[in-house]
């Protein structure tokens, strides 16, 4: 564990808490569209469920296990909230990204490009590929509405930072422990790349107190 990875994981936690906070806030504003993509959240739940199949078999550390349990539980809880509790605030008309294509693509790629052709490894690889593109429905929704509430942009910023710090962590690990993991690196680079446009607008507008609006 290094500082980059630790802060990255903490940013990931922060993003989830921001999301939960936003959902609590949205509930009090009846009828308002939550502007959170259900599809992205459902994809994240799928990512965690398929990645942590080794939860009971492979013990790394208390930190590792606790985080895994938290990510699985919180992602399922968010999906539950959006699907049942706050269903009225979720507007499927804005959430139109074709998620089945990215799920299909990630599954096909995981079957072809993996480290070992075992059920667990293919599921793990699938989760890596799927995480890389899981934010697309959310970003697509943002493009469609053309604007975002400040709290939504903070959520995306926390997620983007978490991914960016993982890139730094891999460079650090490569030099300090000869750590190499091409599947994770390429998928991670793609994933971080997806946030570039968002980061640009976040830094040039939101942090200067302006509304998040697409040009």
């Amino acid at each position: 564990m290094n500082l980059f990875r630790l802060v990255a994981d903490l940013m990931h936690l922060v993003s989830i808490f921001i999301l939960l906070l936003k959902m609590q806030k949205t509930r009090s504003v009846a009828g308002r569209c939550s502007r959170i993509s259900f599809k992205t959240q459902a994809l994240y739940a799928t990512v965690f469920l398929t990645r942590y199949t080794d939860l009971f078999a492979n013990f790394q550390s208390l930190y590792n296990t606790t985080m895994k349990v938290f990510f699985i539980a919180s992602s399922l809880y968010i999906v539950f909230l959006m699907k049942f509790k706050f269903k009225a605030t979720n507007d499927p008309r804005l959430d139109t990204f074709k998620a089945q294509y990215v799920v299909g693509g990630a599954a096909a790629l995981a079957l072809i490009v993996n480290y070992a052709f075992t059920v667990q490894e293919v599921l793990w690889t699938f989760s890596i590929y799927l995480e890389a593109v899981a934010i697309l429905p959310q970003l697509f929704m943002l493009t469609k509405t053309g604007e975002a509430e400040v709290i939504t942009t903070h959520y995306l910023f926390a997620l983007g930072t978490y991914r960016g710090l993982y890139l730094v962590n891999w460079i650090y690990r490569y030099w300090t422990e000869y750590y190499v993991d091409w599947i994770v690196w390429i998928a991670g680079a793609v994933q971080t790349g997806l946030y570039c446009d968002f980061f640009y607008i976040y830094f040039t507008k939101v942090l200067k107190g302006a509304k998040f609006e697409l040009p």
């Binding site: 990875r5 080794d54 492979n58 590792n64 985080m67 990510f71 480290y115 070992a116 993991d181």
Partner: peptide
């Protein structure tokens, strides 16, 4: 290629 115990990241 990493060894089989490579999944130490979250």
């Amino acid at each position: 290629q990493p060894d089989q115990n490579h999944h130490d990241e979250l």
